[in-house]
């Protein structure tokens, strides 16, 4: 499992962008990652620039994140549940602010990547890690060729180059270790073809407890699932 206390990624970068295909797990990873950052740094912020999904967004976790001392950048309240592509201007400011570690949760697919493109200048001028999140159990992301095609296309649309891939193969409660290992095999091919490294395999905390460090080939990072339905 990745030890973020010592991992060089937190020394190299101050901004962390999670983008990728629709439903790949960007929001859940962002929500966990920003909390990890908060355990290590005083000034931490998260920006929700998802203009694609109407529900299950980072903004739904605004109150608990703020209670944890994390600065949350979302559209102002009257427009919070609006069907409008709003990016608050302070996002650019925080990406430039050297004092802050910033997580950016991006909307899915080409539309989400295009929105991200509006921030590409800030990302180029300040140390920014751009993670491409992949769940191989999602449609249009099941084969190496499909994933490579998505990576090139979304990278172009966002005008950002991908620092690393985050492997997030899962089927919610029905995830198995075999399934994750198959996902790793697919992403190894993607990584070899694109020369983009795989940063980590994501494990939900409920599964992480049952997995030994050596069961998987990529380093692992654990997330907690925050955005649940009321009956779960």
């Amino acid at each position: 499992m990745i030890d973020f206390n010592t991992h060089p990624i937190l020394k190299t970068y101050k901004n962390f962008i999670f983008f990728g295909m629709f439903g790949s797990g960007k929001t859940e990873i962002s929500l966990s990652f920003v909390r990890t950052l908060k355990t290590l740094f005083e000034l931490v912020a998260i920006a929700d620039i998802d203009t694609v999904s109407p529900f299950f967004r980072s903004r739904d976790e605004k109150a608990p994140l703020e209670a944890a001392g994390i600065r949350v950048m979302v559209p102002p309240f009257p427009f919070l549940h609006g069907d409008l592509p709003i990016i608050v201007p302070e996002v650019g400011g925080f990406l430039q602010n050297e004092a802050y570690r910033v997580v950016v949760d991006v909307g899915g697919d080409d539309d989400g990547a295009t929105v991200l493109g509006s921030l590409s200048r800030f990302a180029k001028e300040h140390p920014t890690a751009v993670f491409f999140v992949v769940n191989t159990k999602r449609p249009f992301s099941e084969t190496p060729n499909a994933i490579i095609h998505n990576m090139y296309r979304l990278s172009q649309k966002s005008r950002m180059s991908i620092t690393a891939i985050i492997h997030n193969t899962h089927l919610q409660a029905e995830t198995t270790l075999d399934m994750i290992a198959q996902g790793e095999a697919i992403l190894r091919e993607v990584s070899e073809a694109t020369k983009v490294p795989v940063f980590a395999t994501v494990l939900q905390d409920s599964l992480a407890r049952a997995v030994s460090d050596h069961a998987l080939s990529f380093p692992t990072m654990t997330i907690h699932r925050y955005l649940k339905t009321s009956w779960e």
Partner: peptide, 14 residues
């Protein structure tokens, strides 16, 4: 094999 789908996507594919 199972895949992870949003309701909207699942109804479309089905």
């Amino acid at each position: 094999e199972k895949i992870l789908l949003k309701g909207n996507e699942a109804m479309a594919e089905a």
